[in-house]
Simulated assay, not measured.
Amino acid sequence: MAAIEFRHVYFRYKESSPWVLEDFNLEIDKNQTVAILGHNGSGKSTIAKLANGLLIPQSGEIYIHNTLVTEETIWEVRKQIGLVFQNPENQFVGTTVRDDVAFGLENRGIPREEMLKRIEQSLIQVEMEDYQDHEPHHLSGGQKQRVAIASVMATQPDILLLDEATSMLDPKGRKEILTTINALKQQLAITMVMITHDLHEIYQADRVIVMNQGNIYKDTIVDQLFEDYKGLQSIGLTLPLTVQLAIELEKHDYHFAKYPLNNEELVDALWTSDLNK
């Protein structure tokens, strides 16, 4: 069963504006981790907002676990989807980390005993259990985003949407969040959609979708994505430095079975390539 399905969806923000999504079709399987890439304006963030019912398409249908998203079903659909935005401070409502995680549970009428259990569990999942009494606004960027993820995970969604969740973080904070996402993927049976413009962030994905001008430019897996690196550059995406280096090294008779996404992969690839020269 598909977790998320878009059928012939058209969407634009103003009647006089061009289509952001035009006759758009997408199916994401249950428990799949999908990275959706694209430059600014490619339509990738619009997908997340449409899936969560924050936006309504002008035409077409969107299904969440076979339920058509409408004004009548939107609240039931939102119980199944957790959405984490790029700025975690936009999601903070509590004076402490514990209060903030509790907020969504209180709105859903979760009994206190169950609420306390969920708060503890979700903070452990993101390694923030020692910060329950801290004020969210005094945390680092990576810590704030981990609290935002914990607040969403406490509601036990079937689908987790991360909309540019690392774009406002420094390298340390970005690494923290990617480690957290990977841990959640290993621990839980959950559908995860990562909206990003950063090609460094896709290594955990089972599937990679590249957006361009409101439609799917490429639907592939991580190991095959950079086979079309010239095409990715032509639509405005910046290649990871390790991929750029590997491309240059190929001009000097090094050979790579796949392009490396991080330093560890690059070192391993260079070692193997050097042995095979």
Rank of each mutant, 00 (worst) to 15 (best):
T70P: 04
T220V: 05
T67M: 14
F6N: 03
R174M: 14
Q213S: 10
V267L: 08
D198R: 04
N25F: 11
A148E: 01
N90H: 15
L139P: 00
V34H: 11
V222R: 01
E135H: 14
N90E: 13
E120K: 14
V208T: 00
A35E: 08
A257H: 06
G53W: 09
R146F: 08
G60L: 10
S45Y: 09
V152L: 01
R108V: 13
R108N: 15
L241I: 13
T220K: 02
D133H: 03
T166I: 05
L237G: 00
M194V: 15
V126I: 02
N215P: 07
Y13S: 03
L139A: 02
M1Y: 14
H255C: 06
L178G: 05
D206N: 02
K251E: 09
I81C: 08
L162T: 01
T220Q: 04
L55Y: 13
K175N: 11
L169C: 03
A257F: 06
E248F: 13
V193M: 15
Q125M: 13
S42H: 08
I216E: 09
E22I: 11
D23H: 10
H138M: 08
V222A: 04
V222I: 01
I110W: 11
R174L: 11
V147P: 00
L50K: 04
Q121F: 14
T73V: 07
T96G: 03
I124M: 10
Y259K: 00
P260H: 02
L275R: 06
G236F: 05
K30I: 12
Q204Y: 09
I110E: 09
P136T: 01
Q145K: 05
S273P: 00
A48E: 04
L37F: 14
K144N: 02
P18S: 15
R118T: 04
R12Y: 10
E5A: 15
D228E: 07
R12K: 14
Q233L: 05
L26H: 10
H200A: 05
L162V: 02
F24R: 05
H252C: 10
Q121G: 06
D223G: 06
P157H: 07
G43K: 05
I56Q: 07
E120W: 10
K175C: 08
V267Q: 03
V243H: 10
Y63V: 04
M128S: 00
M153L: 03
E135D: 08
I159D: 02
K175M: 13
